[in-house]
Amino acid sequence: MTESKRIHPHKFTLWVAMASIVMMFAGLTSAYIVKRGQTNWQGFDLPLIFTYSTMVIIASSITMQLAIKKFKDRQMLQYRWLLVITALLGVVFMVMQFTGFNILNQRGIKLIGRGSNVSGSFLAVIAGMHMLHVLGGIIALAVMLGKAFSTRNRTYTAVPVEVLGTYWHFVDGLWIYLFIFLKWIS
C-alpha cells in the first residue's frame, strides 16, 4: 500500500470521533424512545422555526464545501469569505434553535425546571447538546479563519480544512437525523 492511498491519520481519528458522538446521541434518542412508551408523556409539535434552522444548517454545509473547493483552487479570497459565511450561518442556526426553545416556553411547554415534562426536557438536552457541537465547529472555523488571515504562515495542505469540513457536514447530518427523529418519530 502506498502512502498516498492511505487515509490521513487525522481524518481517520475524526471518523472514529464521529462514531463516538453518534453513540452519545444514540444513547439519548433511545432513552427518548424508552421514556415515550411510559406514562406521563406529553407530546407537542415542533415550532416551524426548527424547519427553517434545518435549511440554514444545510446551506452552511454547501458554503463549507465551496470553501474547501476554493482552498484547493488556491482562491484564497473566496475561501476566506466562504468560511466567514459558514460560521455566520452556524451562529444564525444556534440563535434560531434558541428562539425555538423560547417559542415553546411561550406556548406553555416548559423545557426545564419545576413543572417541566420529560418530552420537553429531552428536546432541550438533545438539541442543546447538538448546539454545543455546532459551537465547537464555529470555534474551529474561527481558528481556521485566523490562520487564513495570518500572513506569517502559508498553508498548502488541504487536510485541516477537509477535516473541519467533514466535521461540519457531520454536525449538519446529525441535526437532520435529530430533526426527523423529533418531528416525525415523536
Partner: peptide, 27 residues
C-alpha cells in the same frame, strides 16, 4: 469509544435532573 459516550449521555440527563429541575430519573 463506543460505550463511554452513552455513559456521558446518562450523566447529562443526571446533571439536568440535579440542577435544572427536570424529571428524567425522578418520580
Amino acid at each position: 469509544v463506543l460505550s463511554f459516550p452513552v455513559l456521558f449521555s446518562g450523566f447529562i440527563l443526571l446533571l439536568f435532573d440535579r440542577n435544572l429541575g427536570t424529571s428524567f430519573y425522578l418520580s
